[in-house]
Amino acid sequence: MSAALSIADWLALFGQFMVLSMLSIGGAIVLVPDMQRLMVEHYGLLSVDQFNASIAIAQASPGPNVLFVAVLGYQAAGPVGAAATLLGIMLPSSVLALAVSRWGAGREPGRLARAFKAGLAPVTIALLICSAWVLVAQTPGWRAMLLAAGAALLMWRTRIHLLWLIAAGAFAGILGWV
């Protein structure tokens, strides 16, 4: 499926991922529809199955979820493809995060900055609950809700190692409980 792209095409793809990077408020996962349009429909680099398998592989391995972007590039064109897509998605947002860190470092928080932090704290917590909700709602049924609620409570109230909980989830999935 991997079509031969010219250097100009790769640069264009890199540029488009750089644009997507600046739009990825809420994480790279919100960009999946756009990436599918680019890589599957526009450039024909991947089939739909390859695209979905890339996301599944990234979910199965440890590390930041954004690595699925590297798998997309890798499936299309090996290490060069992975570098193009991952660097494209990471560079602009990282430069911005560094700029913000640099701007805020060593500065006395003024009233505006304190209002920013205090105001956004409950919003941030609610957004975490939303992410959890979206992840769990992919699997319908009360048993998925129960498993998620159990994991949440155990994490909140005990010192159990999180890997045990993830392993229990994999086990429950294999046995067909969720």
Partner: peptide, 9 residues
């Protein structure tokens, strides 16, 4: 199953 637990975490 792992995704459900990740949501819980």
């Amino acid at each position: 199953g792992m995704a459900v637990v990740s949501g819980g975490l």
